[in-house]
Write a protein that binds this DNA or RNA. Sequence first.
DNA 1: TATTGTTATACTCTATAACTATA
DNA 2: TATAGTTATAGAGTATAACAATA
Lengths: 141, 141
Amino acid sequence: MRPTAEVTGLATDVRLACMRIARRVRFENAGALAPHQFSALVRLEDSPRTPGELAEVERVSAPSMTRTLAHLEEKGLVRRSPHPTDGRQVLLALTDAGRATLAEVRAERDEWMATRLADLTAEERRTLREATAILARVAAR
Amino acid sequence: MRPTAEVTGLATDVRLACMRIARRVRFENAGALAPHQFSALVRLEDSPRTPGELAEVERVSAPSMTRTLAHLEEKGLVRRSPHPTDGRQVLLALTDAGRATLAEVRAERDEWMATRLADLTAEERRTLREATAILARVAAR
DNA sequence: TATTGTTATACTCTATAACTATA
DNA sequence: TATAGTTATAGAGTATAACAATA
């Protein structure tokens, strides 16, 4: 469907609101983990992956991912193991420390948001709950 | 007010939704302008500012801002002029090209969002409209 | 003597190209 | 010969320290 003026105006507002929130969350929680390191760690949460897969999904070059993974390994957050069937490939997996770090960073970020949402009315929170479901679909497309 | 479990869960959802949207918008529109250059340009929109003011509000060092401004000046997006009363300071202002560039980047970003919002129902857009007003207040605190 | 801005230098993240090992 | 990953090298952004000009 072709966007109307009403939709375009809303698009601006939604975009700006989301970018400001994201910026505040990142700023408030610089944390011990750089953004690209955090992103890579998140990708390993569901299952181990190869450096190549991680580079592709994070849209960085293979050498960049090599470097990022080396740092995460130094910090003990990921562990590497040989690929079971392809000797050229390597598998990276989260360590217990890696999982704990992910949880910590998320807890800090949630706390920032939660303290602010606690001051809203129940009605306002209901609106946000509905909106996040919609935004999740929008982001997925 | 102390966050309840219900609020903490919502905080996670809101935070994730906003960060995903922000990420998609940034990814989708890499544009001709690097993020830090775009940010600095936005700060000059309302009125001219000194390098020191820009460095503080963008939370980067003075030398970093010097460098950023040099690049923006090379591209013809900002113009420098002497401070009227203090010979040590310098004033940076947007050029017409700078304003045009800002408008272009925003238009691209809005288009990405607008094409997605156009597929939603009117009811869903009403929810988003209410939510963005709430989020704007949250981000401002 | 303090402040504003720039230059000097070093470190980090990123990319492309070259290299090694395996398929 | 093609693919996965690493190493070599270079480019861009950032920071701290040192410097020049002005208050």
